[in-house]
Amino acid sequence: MATKAVCVLKGDGPVQGIINFEQKESNGPVKVWGSIKGLTEGLHGFHVHEFGDNTAGCTSAGPHFNPLSRKHGGPKDEERHVGDLGNVTADKDGVADVSIEDSVISLSGDHCIIGRTLVVHEKADDLGKGGNEESTKTGNAGSRLACGVIGIAQ
């Protein structure tokens, strides 16, 4: 089992970053940390998408990683996509320092995120509470600013 993974985020604009993942036990939580720069100040949706395909930019990554066919939600919700990591918060300089621990994603097994795409979005994720159909699919997080395929790390 891989215990570490990394993702280099890039987009068409100024947004870029490096996100690290570490899972010490196969059924334990995954620590997610790193930094994203070039964002507007505020909240930005942060999700693992189904495919590791960036051939047409971030759009070819498909929908959120959702092997259990659930509705979109927040990272602490029972009803959520596996890939729903909530929001990252950018400061006035456009930098989001990421520090998350998640017990639904994994670096092995059915919820493995390796080979899938991590995406940072234009807007805040409403965590499935926006009151419309799009909220239950995407959290109304808007366009995909930057993305990268999650790969095994040393």
Rank of each mutant, 00 (worst) to 15 (best):
G94S: 09
T55H: 04
E41W: 12
W33R: 12
T55C: 06
P29G: 15
S106C: 07
S103N: 05
G83F: 03
L127M: 15
T117Y: 01
G109W: 08
H44T: 03
V48E: 01
G17P: 01
R70N: 08
G28W: 06
N27H: 15
N20A: 10
N140S: 07
F46Y: 06
A146I: 09
I19R: 02
A2C: 12
V149R: 02
K129L: 08
P67I: 15
A96S: 05
S135H: 03
D84L: 02
K4D: 06
V98E: 06
N54M: 15
K4Y: 09
D102W: 07
P75W: 13
V15G: 13
S69K: 15
A124P: 10
K137T: 12
N27I: 15
K129I: 06
P14T: 10
G130C: 06
K31E: 13
D97L: 10
D97A: 12
A124Q: 07
V95M: 08
H111E: 15
P75I: 06
L39G: 06
N54Q: 13
G57W: 03
I113V: 14
L85A: 05
G86M: 04
V149L: 09
A5P: 00
E22G: 09
L9H: 01
E50M: 11
A90R: 05
R144A: 00
R144M: 02
S108A: 13
T40D: 12
P29S: 10
T55S: 11
G109N: 13
E101D: 12
E78W: 06
K24G: 09
K129M: 07
R70D: 10
A96K: 03
D125P: 03
C7R: 01
S26H: 15
V8H: 06
D102S: 07
T3A: 00
V82P: 11
L9S: 04
W33Y: 08
K137P: 03
S26T: 14
D97R: 13
N66S: 13
G11S: 13
C58E: 00
V30K: 03
G74D: 15
K10W: 14
K71S: 09
E79S: 10
N54Y: 07
N66H: 06
L145Y: 12
E22Y: 07
T59H: 11
A124V: 11
I113Y: 01
K4R: 12
H44S: 07
N54R: 09
S143Q: 04
V82Y: 15
N132R: 10
L9G: 00
G17N: 05
H111F: 11
P63Q: 06
E133N: 12
R116D: 00
F46H: 10
G128F: 01
W33D: 12
G131K: 04
D125W: 00
I114A: 07
G73V: 00
S60M: 04
E101T: 07
G94D: 12
D93G: 15
V8P: 03
T40F: 07
L118S: 11
S106V: 13
A96Q: 14
E122K: 09
H121V: 01
T138E: 02
N54K: 08
A56R: 10
V95H: 06
R144Y: 02
K92Y: 12
D84C: 03
E79A: 10
S35D: 11
A153P: 15
S60P: 01
G115H: 01
G34S: 04
T136I: 11
V88F: 07
I150M: 05
G131Q: 15
G94Q: 15
S26R: 13
N27G: 09
I19N: 03
V95T: 05
Q23I: 07
L107Y: 03
D125F: 02
T138H: 06
R80K: 07
N140I: 05
T136M: 15
F65P: 02
L127T: 10
V104Y: 07
N54H: 14
